[in-house]
């Protein structure tokens, strides 16, 4: 990359990314927790079939923004969202939108692996069951198997599908949670620091998985690890103190960012 001239790099990237349509559009998004304002008029668009990484120091609002995308903030008392977020042209904060349906289209994987205290099979079948995506035993078997395949977990658990999901290792649990999210066939998957509770080997597996999932899903990932953002994402957005500092191609972001604060953060000067 560094061999190319700056202008050439930008041109190449523009051509590459500009062809990708937007899946979600966030316009002037602000979030308040009671009196406290956590996000300030963020304008951030998420491109389809792309991994977008949200980075920034702790408390910068990146997780808050992520949770506005499937309205998980609704479950927090006193939380208020202003601005407009669309998913394929639909305003997701429109009162006419069913939040349950929205979350089926925009799935989520959390920081700490949180398998339900049920069997591995039932964990994956949970979403299809409540949304009526499968009816017969054979259909359930199929959706569970394909989801576990997509999450790269099938070979490890195929012989113990009816053992509790909580009995798996941390990394396996997280991939089970990804399989659980995938089983609903969402369009977007949100990941809130999915590897922060995992060891390096499990992290590598999850990262590899994210890479593969990109072909079928739009992924937004919050991460504290600069290397992880560089490894898995194509677009990166940098948050600081509730503001969106910069959003750019990941390659450009890590070699030649537009904003000084991004440069400082990436170089480890603050955060």
């Amino acid at each position: 990359m560094n061999i190319m001239s700056e202008a050439a790099v930008e041109k190449a990237l523009d051509q590459k990314m500009n062809t990708v349509p937007y899946k979600m559009i966030g316009k002037d998004v602000s979030v308040y927790y009671g009196e406290k304002r956590a996000l300030f008029d963020v304008n951030l668009n998420i491109r389809e079939n792309t991994v977008t990484a949200l980075i920034g120091p702790s408390g910068c609002g990146k997780s808050t923004f992520l949770r506005t995308l499937n309205r998980m903030n609704d479950t927090i008392e006193n939380c208020r969202v202003t601005g407009k977020i669309t998913l394929d042209e639909d305003d997701i904060y429109d009162p006419a939108i069913d939040v349950v349906e929205l979350r089926a289209r925009v799935g989520m994987v959390f920081q700490k692996p949180n398998p339900f205290p049920k069997s591995i099979f039932d964990n994956v079948a949970y979403g299809p069951r409540i949304h009526g995506l499968a009816r017969t035993k054979a259909e359930f078997d199929e959706v569970v198997e394909t989801s576990l395949h997509k999450a790269g977990l099938w070979n490890e658990v195929k012989d113990r599908l009816h053992e509790p999901g909580t009995g798996l290792s941390g990394g396996q649990q997280q991939r089970l949670c990804i399989a659980r999210a995938v089983a609903v066939s969402p369009e977007v998957i949100l990941m809130d620091e999915p590897c922060s509770a995992l060891d390096p080997i499990a992290t590598a597996k999850v990262e590899e998985l994210i890479h593969e999932l990109r072909t079928n899903f739009t992924i937004v990932i919050v991460t504290h690890s600069m290397q992880q953002a560089a490894r898995v994402s194509q677009r990166t957005a940098m948050f600081h103190l509730g503001n969106l500092v910069e959003e750019n191609d990941t390659d450009k972001m890590f070699t030649n960012p537009d904003d000084q604060r991004t440069q400082d953060y990436i170089m480890g000067r603050f955060g």
Binding site: N70, M72, T75, V100, E101, L102, R103, A104, G107, M108, F110, K112, N114, P115, F116, P117, Y126, G127, I130, H131, C177, R180, A181, V184
Partner: peptide, 15 residues
């Protein structure tokens, strides 16, 4: 019951 389980279920689109 941990909040994570609630979030996990709500995040999958359960009511």
């Amino acid at each position: 019951v941990p909040r994570a389980l609630r979030d996990g279920s709500l995040g999958l689109g359960a009511t």
